[in-house]
C-alpha cells in the first residue's frame, strides 16, 4: 500500500511544481525582463548611481578644483592623477592651480572616496554607465576642459 501512496504523493508534488511553471507560462505579465538598448530613452538610473567620475563646469568654463590632490590621496588604487602648476596672483601670492586632472576609468572601482574627500565639491559621479570603448587608451580621461579656469571663490 505504501508503494501506491509513494507513487501518488510523488505525482502530487511533481504536479505542484508543474502548476507553478504553468502559472508563469500562462501569465506573461509576470515577465521581469527589460530590454536594454530599446529602453535607453526611458531608462532612469538613480541619482546616486556611480558610473563615471566627472568634473562639472559652469557656463563660463570654470570648474571648482583647487588642485589640492585630496582625491588622489584618498583613491585606494591610483585612479586619479592631479597635475598642478604654481600661479602668482595679482597680490603677489603663489597659488596652486589645476593643470590636468587625469582619471583612469580602467582602474576605478567606483568607491566614491574621491568625491567624499573633495573639500570643494569639484568632482562627482554621473550616471553615464556605457563605458565600452574600442581602445584601451580611451579609458584614460582628462576631466577638466581645455582652457578652463577655477571659479572665483576658490581663487
Amino acid at each position: 500500500m505504501s508503494y501506491i501512496e509513494n507513487i501518488l504523493s510523488t505525482s502530487v508534488s511533481l504536479l505542484k511544481g508543474m502548476k507553478m511553471t504553468g502559472y508563469y507560462f500562462s501569465h506573461p505579465k509576470e515577465i521581469y525582463t527589460r530590454q536594454y538598448p530599446e529602453n535607453r530613452k526611458t531608462l532612469k538610473l538613480p541619482e546616486r548611481f556611480r558610473a563615471e567620475l566627472t568634473m562639472p563646469h559652469d557656463e563660463f568654463n570654470r570648474h571648482r578644483c583647487s588642485g589640492c590632490t585630496a582625491c588622489e590621496i584618498a583613491c585606494p588604487n591610483g585612479t586619479i592623477k592631479v597635475l598642478t602648476y604654481m600661479e602668482t596672483t595679482p597680490d603677489n601670492k603663489k597659488k596652486k592651480r589645476l593643470d590636468t586632472f587625469i582619471y583612469r576609468l580602467s582602474m576605478c572601482t567606483f568607491c566614491n572616496l574621491c568625491v567624499d574627500s573633495c573639500p570643494s565639491d569639484a568632482i562627482k559621479f554621473n550616471q553615464h554607465f556605457e563605458h565600452s570603448v574600442t581602445e584601451r587608451k580611451q579609458l584614460t580621461k582628462v576631466l577638466n576642459r581645455q582652457g578652463s579656469t577655477v571659479t572665483d571663490e576658490l581663487k
Binding site: 511553471t21 504553468g22 508563469y24 507560462f25 506573461p28 509576470e30 515577465i31 521581469y32 525582463t33 530590454q35
Partner: peptide, 13 residues
Amino acid sequence: KVAAFMQIRLGPM
C-alpha cells in the same frame, strides 16, 4: 520561448 516564459524571461527577441 517556452523556457523563457516559464522563467519570466522574454527569450530570443
